[in-house]
Design a protein around this nucleic acid. Structure first.
Length: 404
RNA sequence: GCGUCGGUGGCAGAGUGGUCAAUUGCACUUGGCUGUAAACCAAGCGGAUUUAUCCUACGCAGGUUCGAAUCCUGCCCGGCGCA
């Protein structure tokens, strides 16, 4: 491979595909699910376990690692992977998502996935710097960058595309993302459009900042991020614009609703170069991952597996179950009788239910491990099915059982 | 036995004349969680319901009062102190 990372397209199957992503820390068979290790750890799961579960790459977060412990410490340790004891490939997110989660979403119940129609309103996604007070949110956006108030100690910080790239150079992941703005699904069309253009300008600046650092260029690849929110025309425009820049890979970010997710991908993906990897940021849940794969995405990261597990909900072939519910107290059955997850075989629903109810951390560990194993296995199965030309069937079968 | 403090919803513990079916926490029930401010958040949690109200309830039994978990009397039970 000529750059820091390379991508070999292996096989296509309608719009879906398999491939191999090459990095200095090893190859990644795609499609692949990327466990999220925000603060240099996948919550509740040891690197060794991740490897057993089949994880190939882990994603850390710029905002969080910058605040704690500070990127210079990660750099001194030898980079994100070495610091956390993970031998394989790593990625970092740029902090763009925190623009949303600490900004427009702060203190509210909104998430990046909109539900139905009710959220198509016109909620202001950022405050006007002239008139805003910081009450109620921790991130303020302007065209140049974003000012943050640390959620840890209230101190003030500022990210620009250049700064985000600089931090990500220090974190040293094999792949990292350009600094972007993840908008709220409740933002207006006009706002989404403005934010998208801002993200395009930030993409250029991120790319330039990276290419200027020859040393970092040799070891790290940079992904540009397509935005455009819930509007197909914006998605298409954004993809075209980002694709015209010399990125090593592409991310599709921002907000969706269940209904328009596939449409957004169908609008964006045809604009992206086939020979470069595509990462679906923050997605997802089992069904959404299969949708992404079907549309031609290669990589997925998501906190849902570990967060839901930690909170007591586990994935099963027949849908999600909440282990803390009354009925599982005495259900001495495997977590998911139809899915074998290495390391969780001995445990029953009743046992994990008890651990979860009594606040034992092992319950969270087992449930997180199970969910991660489940989604990794699902994606792995999808890859196999793609190679055998049976993906359509694979997906249909899964959806039928899972959402039955 | 005398004195003293106390007995409140599954538990702990507020309340000390009306705004109290009773603050709060835990437990419990049910939801939610998609680039992790998240081992978190939300709702419910005496009964019946036309959801407006009614009934039952702050150890038990009486009483005072327009009105009592709150005041008085007796009884029962518990802690502590003195015998």
């Amino acid at each position: 491979m000529e750059g820091a990372i390379g991508f070999t397209l292996e096989k296509k199957h309608e719009r879906a595909r398999t491939g191999v992503l090459h990095t200095a820390h090893g190859d990644i068979q795609t499609p692949a699910f990327v466990p999220v290790g925000t603060k240099a750890n996948v919550k509740g799961v040891l690197p060794e376990t991740l490897a057993h579960l089949g994880a190939q790459v882990v994603l850390g977060n710029t905002y969080h690692l910058y605040l704690q412990p500070g990127e210079e410490i990660v750099e001194q340790a030898g980079g994100l992977g070495t610091f956390m004891g993970w031998n394989g490939p790593t990625m970092t997110d740029s902090g763009g998502f925190q623009v949303f989660s600490l900004g427009a979403a702060y203190g509210r119940t909104i998430t990046k996935i909109a539900k139905g129609e009710e959220s198509a309103g016109d909620v202001v996604a950022v405050y006007d710097p002239e008139v805003q007070t910081q009450h109620g949110q921790l991130a303020i956006i302007d065209d140049e960058g974003v000012s943050f108030t640390s959620h840890i100690d209230g101190s003030l910080h500022r990210f620009t595309p250049e700064r985000s790239v600089e931090i990500q150079h220090a974190l040293g992941a094999d792949m990292f993302f350009a600094f972007d703005e993840c908008t709220s699904p409740t933002a207006s069309y006009e706002y989404q459009k403005d934010a998208m253009h801002r993200t395009h300008r930030w993409a250029e600046r991120s790319l330039r900042a990276h290419r200027q650092n020859l040393e970092a260029n040799r070891r790290q690849g940079i992904f540009g991020i397509v935005q455009g929110g819930r509007h197909e025309d914006l998605r298409r425009e954004s993809a075209k614009e980002i694709a015209s820049m010399d990125f090593d890979g592409f991310g599709i970010g921002g907000s969706f609703s269940k209904e328009d997710m596939a449409g957004a991908l169908q609008a964006a993906i045809p604009e992206l170069p086939e020979e470069k990897p595509r990462h679906f940021l923050g997605i997802g849940e089992p069904g959404d991952v299969l949708t992404g794969i079907a549309e031609g995405m290669d990589l997925f990261d998501c906190v849902a597996a570990t967060r839901m597990g930690r909170h007591g909900t586990i994935y099963t072939r027949r849908g999600n179950i909440h282990l803390k519910s009354e009925k599982y107290r005495t259900e001495f059955a495997p977590l998911d009788p139809e899915t074998i997850i290495p390391g969780t075989e001995p445990f029953t629903r009743a046992y994990v239910s008890h651990l979860l109810r009594s606040g034992e951390m092992l319950g969270q560990i087992i449930a997180s491990t199970h969910n991660l194993g489940f989604i990794l296995r699902l994606v792995d199965g999808a890859r196999e099915a793609l190679l055998h030309g049976t993906f359509g069937e694979y997906r249909e079968n899964f959806i039928r059982d899972y959402y039955a």
